[in-house]
Amino acid sequence: MALGFFSRLKAGLTRSTTKLTTGITDTFTKRKLDDFALEELEELLIAADLGPTVAAKVIRAFRRARFGQDVSPPEIRAALADEIAKILAPVAQPLTIDETKQPFVILMVGVNGTGKTTTIGKLAQIYADAGQKPMLVAGDTFRAAAVEQLQIWGNRAHAPVVIGAQDADPAGLAFDAMTRAEREGAKILLIDTAGRLHNKAALMEELRKIIRVIKKRDPTAPHAILLTLDATTGQNALTQVKTFKDMVDLTGLIVTKLDGSARAGVVVALAESTGLPIHAVGVGEQAADLRPFDATEFARALTGADPV
C-alpha cells in the first residue's frame, strides 16, 4: 500500500518531477555549486510552486552544506528531498476519529471547485467500508446540482444523505442533520458546505454561523474542520488557508488533484507557514485514491529522488 501510494503519487507528479529534475540535471551535471547555480536552483523550486520564501530557505541550507562542492544530480535530489521532508514531517498526521464523540462531526470547507463534495464522497465510502456508519449532509444549497452530486456519492457508499431545499439555510440543515444523526446512531457526520472565496466576508460569516448552530446541538462539535486545497493553486493558497484558519479554526487540510500536475510545492510552503496537519491527498477520482499524506514519500516524489 505504501509503495502503491508512492508510485501513484510519483506517476501523478511525473510532470513536475521531470521538469524539476531535468532542470537540476542541466544545472549541475558539469559544475560546482556556485552562486549562479544556487540562484538557478532557487528558481527551479519556485517554478514548482514552493514559493520564494521556502525556496530561499532551502537554498540557504544548501549553501551552508554544499557551497563550492562538486555535486551530482542524484545528490542534489536526495538532499533536496531531505530538506523538504524535514519541513513536511510535522504536518503529516492522519485524521483520527474520536469514537467517544458520536456522531463525530466533520465539516468540509474551502474555495469553489477545490473538491469538497468529491472528498466527502470518498471519505463516506472509506468510512462505510470500515463499518463506521457515515451520514452525509448536503450543505451546499447554493451551487446547482451540488445536492444531487452528493446523493450519488451517498448511494455508492450506502450512506444516508440529509438534504434541504435549494437555497435553504445551511446552518439550519446542519442542525437538523445533527439531530437525525443522533437519533439514527450515525457514527460520523460529514457536512458539505458551499464553496466560498475567503475574501468574501459575508460568506465567511455564513460559515461561522453554521459552526455556531452546530455547537448548540453539541458544544464539542464540529470535531474536525477540514479545508480542501486544490494542488494547482499557487501562492494564493497561503492567504486562503490563513483566512479560513483565522475565521473558522481549521483543524486540517486535504490536498486534492495531486495526480495531475506540478503544484505540490505549495504544500511545502503551507507546512512552513501554517503548521496545519495535512491529513490526506487526493490522487484520482475514486474513493481509493484518497490516501494518507506521507512526508518522505511526497518529498522524494517531488524532487525525483529514488524511494527510500
Binding site: D49, T232, T233, G234, A237, Q240, S261, G265, V266
Partner: peptide
C-alpha cells in the same frame, strides 16, 4: 482557468 492557479497554469 482559475485565477488562483500557480506555475502550472502554463503547463495546462
Amino acid at each position: 482557468v482559475d485565477a488562483m492557479t500557480g506555475q502550472d497554469a502554463v503547463a495546462t
